[in-house]
Design a protein around this nucleic acid. Sequence first.
DNA 1: TCAAAAAATGACGTTACGTCAAAATATGGC
DNA 2: GCCATATTTTGACGTAACGTCATTTTTTGA
Lengths: 240, 240
Amino acid sequence: MTQSRKQREIAKRHTLFLEIGKRILEEEGFHVLSMERIAELAEYSKGTVYQHFTCKEEILIQLCIEAMTQLLTLFKRAVNMEGSTRDHLVGIFFAQQRWARLGQNRAEMLQHLSMHGVKDKITEHSLLKHNQLEQTIFGLVKNVVDQAIKDGDLQKQKHMQPEETVFGLWSLCTGGQVLQSSDLPLKKFGVDSPDLTLLRTLVLVLDGLGWQPMHNETQFKNLLKRLDAELTLEYEITDN
Amino acid sequence: MTQSRKQREIAKRHTLFLEIGKRILEEEGFHVLSMERIAELAEYSKGTVYQHFTCKEEILIQLCIEAMTQLLTLFKRAVNMEGSTRDHLVGIFFAQQRWARLGQNRAEMLQHLSMHGVKDKITEHSLLKHNQLEQTIFGLVKNVVDQAIKDGDLQKQKHMQPEETVFGLWSLCTGGQVLQSSDLPLKKFGVDSPDLTLLRTLVLVLDGLGWQPMHNETQFKNLLKRLDAELTLEYEITDN
DNA sequence: TCAAAAAATGACGTTACGTCAAAATATGGC
DNA sequence: GCCATATTTTGACGTAACGTCATTTTTTGA
């Protein structure tokens, strides 16, 4: 009992630190995230923060894991929606875009994680959890492709395994986020709505694959409308 | 004369510092790039390095500018090759991949540049130069699309301006690099040759666009072979 | 040869990292 | 309610890198 109360307190503080870390990350970016800053804002001492996280990279990955878990949830909802396998894939892309807009720097967080010298500092445990999540998400998308082949919506490609198709889509999606989160003047480049453009590029890939059933413009617009309505994710209210 | 000799000396040192910066960046990554380190390796003092570069971000961007200039050169060669506009686009992608492999962390360098809090520190001048290069490169690719439309290889898209098409391709390309430079176990994901997969995904987009003339597999393979032979770029020997 | 200009240096103040001995607090037996 | 023991919290410390700038060294040309 007593034990458990203590544990709850610790967990609460853990969340508090993460929360503060998230705020800093979203408002100002990883480069100003510091342990002392978190300690100060949380009104604890540095040492206490270090009892929860071995380094700031560890905070980063835990936030990434949280974010990726949300992404997975959204993806699951996308593939469970009414519709064709093709719709599901568009849904997944759409979900990813929604997700990236929750909080400012969702996409940038993952970026940081992937940079040289970051993963080295991270706990074995967190890294494992992260990798598993990554695999699960990859698997979920691959399932859609597999399903499409099984259903006959998609011809098995001669020169591209399902995994490779997923990798291509993943690249498109990631690249889109990266370009958007870098402060390119996309408007000046003539790209008014990058997310929509990415969705349309996705459609081009699907067309290229001959993925049935094709959409006409009206159907596509309707699909987007449906996704917009159904794939919402309120900014999570954390107060356990 | 004397003036000019002095200037040459300064320029030489400038290059030396950049060279060392590049080496560190390629071998160990941005997170260990430090002014003191460069000073030490160059056998100058920190202050001298600071006379050339206001901060380490400035070194980064100058290296990026150098790298992007090479990329532009390669792109120009790609579009000047014998072949259809479609071939040219594949060539551009291919060139980008080649380029990213020159030196370890070409792609990661650009990543760093795009991260929050980096651009703020950089000289107006360098930033301008970088932005211009970016625009030039974008423009070059857009030209291929425009040309294709003019030549009738590509139908003008109803829902996608040429700029948007380029943005989609750029995303694919960028994302591919990002995923490769992050240490994902792509092999374990079932992706043996990410670059080839990306090229095939590009082809899917082109197919989706109805970009003529389509390739059959043999033609595609031959194109790759040609590109492989013609788009080489020896690791530059800098010793001006 | 030497005074003035230019360039190079490294000590300094600052910030953040990550550690760890000491201080503060909580626990549980009496 | 008291105290010995265990646990938790703290912040001072050593290290590293940043960016600055007064001082020293070198160069220049009269």
